[in-house]
């Protein structure tokens, strides 16, 4: 397997606070990786660097054979649009757009493709609803549909089940498993042992350092 994303001796500091310190990891194509660790250990920061949502203070980040840490903002944006899908703990759906439009909002998405993905996720009767009219589990399924609609090479999910009940968590797991089974790469930040257990590899962070990879 070839490395899709490589983090090499990365340090990320927010002022005096060091979020990540000399972290080196790589994600191979087709992997299912869980990033775990206590709160404040740098999990979300690491995921953001992998997705080009942030830049390291030092060290390098490569994704899809491109140096994300030194590319222009617009070049990184294009890589994200072409290769990556994001799922957030707080969903980050656009509140004034309908479910269908939230998924169609992805640059590469078409209306038919968006509707098909939403139907596959059991949201066919919610297409015209706004996010505020959905249950928490439904909102995260919309978030998943938005991540999947462009058929990305990798899904970067930050605590996707953090606000969900067990049934909804199970549904999210099922969707990610199915995506992985079709050859997709999943990088998941989670506090859930159940979710972490589904991953093929676990990266453990503590106080901004990578302490274990299993």
């Amino acid at each position: 397997m070839s490395a899709l994303i490589t983090i090499d001796h990365v340090r990320k500091a927010h002022g005096a606070v060091v979020a990540l310190d000399d972290v080196s990891v790589s994600i191979d194509r087709g992997e299912y990786v869980a990033i775990v660790g206590p709160s404040g250990s740098g999990k979300t920061t690491l995921l953001s660097l992998m997705g080009g949502l942030d830049r390291p203070t030092s060290g390098s980040v490569h994704a899809f054979d491109q140096p994300l840490s030194t590319l222009s903002t617009s070049a990184v944006t294009r890589i994200r649009a072409r290769h990556m899908g994001f799922v957030f703990q707080l969903f980050h759906l656009i509140p004034y757009l309908s479910v269908l439009d939230n998924v169609r909002a992805v640059p590469a998405a078409t209306a038919d493709r968006a509707q098909a993905v939403l139907t596959e996720l059991g949201l066919a009767d919610r297409l015209r609803h706004r996010p505020g009219q959905l249950s928490v589990g439904e909102r995260q399924r919309v978030g998943l549909a938005r991540a999947l609609v462009s058929a990305p090479d990798v899904i970067l999910a930050d605590e996707p089940t953090g606000n969900l009940d067990p049934a909804a968590e199970s549904e999210v797991s099922r969707v990610l498993d199915a995506y992985h089974a079709q050859g997709g790469t999943v990088v998941l930040v989670t506090h859930s042992d159940t979710m972490a257990a589904r991953a093929g590899r676990t990266i453990r962070l503590e106080a901004g350092r990578c302490v274990e990879t299993t």
Binding site: L53, T77, I94, A105
Partner: peptide
């Protein structure tokens, strides 16, 4: 601001 962040994460340019 979070909407701006989402749009950028989805791949929209400035």
């Amino acid at each position: 601001r979070s909407e701006i962040g989402v749009l950028r994460a989805l791949g929209y340019g400035g």
